[in-house]
Design a binder for these strands. Sequence first.
DNA 1: TCTCGCACGTGGGTCT
DNA 2: AGACCCACGTGCGAGA
Lengths: 252, 252
Amino acid sequence: MDDMKGEYDLYWETKRFLESEELESMWGIEQAISGSYASSSSSVDVVAPSSAAKNIMVERDRRRKLNERLYALRSAVPNITKLDKASTMMDAINYIQELQEQERRMQEEISKLESEKTSIRDVVPIIERDDLLVPQRKKRTTQSSSSLALGSSGSSSLEVTQLRVSKVGERASIVEITCNKRRGSMVKLCEVFHSLNLKIITANITCVPGSISHILLVESEGMENAQMREKVAAAVAEVDAPRSLMSNISLQ
Amino acid sequence: MDDMKGEYDLYWETKRFLESEELESMWGIEQAISGSYASSSSSVDVVAPSSAAKNIMVERDRRRKLNERLYALRSAVPNITKLDKASTMMDAINYIQELQEQERRMQEEISKLESEKTSIRDVVPIIERDDLLVPQRKKRTTQSSSSLALGSSGSSSLEVTQLRVSKVGERASIVEITCNKRRGSMVKLCEVFHSLNLKIITANITCVPGSISHILLVESEGMENAQMREKVAAAVAEVDAPRSLMSNISLQ
DNA sequence: TCTCGCACGTGGGTCT
DNA sequence: AGACCCACGTGCGAGA
């Protein structure tokens, strides 16, 4: 469709140049007009000698402004097919719609990236807000949407502050577990997942002062999210209290 | 600058409606023109009876197309100040530039997010390609610029493929260690750093099929890079072969 | 030749 | 009334 001739450039531009030349100056103001027109006005002669001339000038100015805008529009659009007036506007329309569509795509890509980053962003801020993990909660059936508070008594145990399982695709799951950091917590966490005998595809442990988080991509052979979570929780309890004291966990 | 009157709407729209009404039909084609004009033509009468009328029609069509484009342009721009011709174009120009700027911003935000996600994206595709972890390499003295190949013999030991220490600031060091992944490698690595009794500021373990890497930020109390590296290597050997068989490591 | 695209002046609208 | 904006018909210049 777009023939994109290219020899239009010189044509239009030179024409445009000459026209704007003759338009800008060459007379003072309203001299030539009143000489050629006001004398032959047939309707009203005396009431407005410069009325027609003024109108001409003002109309001229209007056209100039309009063309100015057209050039500005043309210069704002990168892909110009022809230097035509209508084509310029058509190109502008297409370009705008193209930009809008691209904006939409980028927006959804951004939100996609953001949501992919959310799982990390949910974990990291915990580092800053120690108040969140200060309240040593005793209740063990809080069971909000997707966080599970387990962690038995005392001193050097694993205190899990977050445990979330989410399926990715049919055969894999993301397991995110965060706990307070004490000496040996990292080793214990590793042991937990070692003891689970899961097929771990990828794993990532991030450890900062006060907190340690473990994110794994595992093969979840038909297991549901809740099931997997219980299994991990059980393993945590097992490692935590080797004396098989798991009375306080509602294991299915 | 933009006064945004708002009462223009009804004015222009009704006017526009009436004009398009009278333009579209109301005559057949070129009947009224030839009747009112061709008879009073002063220049050439016989050569082209429908020439002027055709021109009129063609010009009319041109204007119609142009206005059509203008409306399309106006409908493509969301924020219209006035239904003016010039204002429409001005709005279109501003909107285009606005979109372009926003595109630029979104582009750089996307690239920022992409770069943040790179560490994950490098890992995930491996899930699909199992062939990548088939080639178990046997060579252990590759020794490129800053990589150290240590690792003793066979089966379930830690085979370290890279160990690098670099100071960051005066009192901290980054320790990067990569090794082949076998069962228990992650636990062993954790034990290594647990046994070193280092003051670990942050730690990160990333584990993909076939390989496991551990990056730590530790307090290096006056230790030099080489010194730290030897210490880590010794600990690896210690965990690897608890019978203190460290003959193949050049420990200072 | 004819077609295309344009600027021009003008009349005719509406809103202050 | 002015100011404003617009469509119209027309002449003109450049390309097929």
